[in-house]
Design a protein around this nucleic acid. Structure first.
Length: 151
DNA sequence: GCCAACGTTGGC
DNA sequence: GCCAACGTTGGC
């Protein structure tokens, strides 16, 4: 079982939204590295749900992978902002998984807190300089450490 | 294959 | 709003 961190801009889709809908197809990822990580996902994999580009960036909740990877339907939709003209049904480029709400983190673990514990979180991609990857793996150790910071 | 230009991400 | 860092595009 692998552990993951997934970023979202809460103005677009927040932990509140995930709690409300329960399960959400993670559409719109158009970065090959992120896609490749989603391809490795398995149902039940734990996910740290991270809010970015907001007042207090941080991990706001826990989610889990709800499906196996499958083609992102928005790539075929000409009206979608995520439409990819180079994708075909026969040869899709982009895959996604559904993400299921597990629980909120009260309190959330802010980016500032993560930085304070950077030594314990060695190798966490989120803390690496210039890291913009929206889907990234975390080690079981990092996952546990981050959970423990929510209090 | 190189690399400049451009667009995007995301913290501050 | 600024700007550093990164990924992608496209001319050559």
């Amino acid at each position: 079982m692998k552990h993951w961190l997934m970023k979202t801009e809460p103005d677009a889709f927040s932990i509140d939204d995930l709690e409300r809908v329960g399960t959400e197809p993670w559409t719109g990822v158009r970065n090959y590295q992120a896609r490749n990580f989603m391809r490795q996902m398995k149902p039940g994999d734990p996910v740290l749900f991270y809010h970015s580009s907001c007042k207090v960036p941080g991990v706001y909740g826990l989610a889990e992978v709800a499906t196996v990877p499958y083609p992102d339907p928005t790539q075929f939709d000409r009206k979608s902002p995520y439409h990819d003209p180079k994708s075909t049904r026969e040869q899709p480029r982009w895959e996604l998984v559904d993400v299921r709400f597990v629980r909120r983190l009260e309190p959330p673990v802010t980016l500032a807190t993560l930085r304070e514990h950077a030594e314990d979180l060695e190798g966490l991609k989120l803390l690496e300089r210039g890291s913009r990857l929206s889907v990234q793996p975390v080690t079981p150790h990092q996952y546990r450490r981050i959970l423990a910071l929510s209090r």
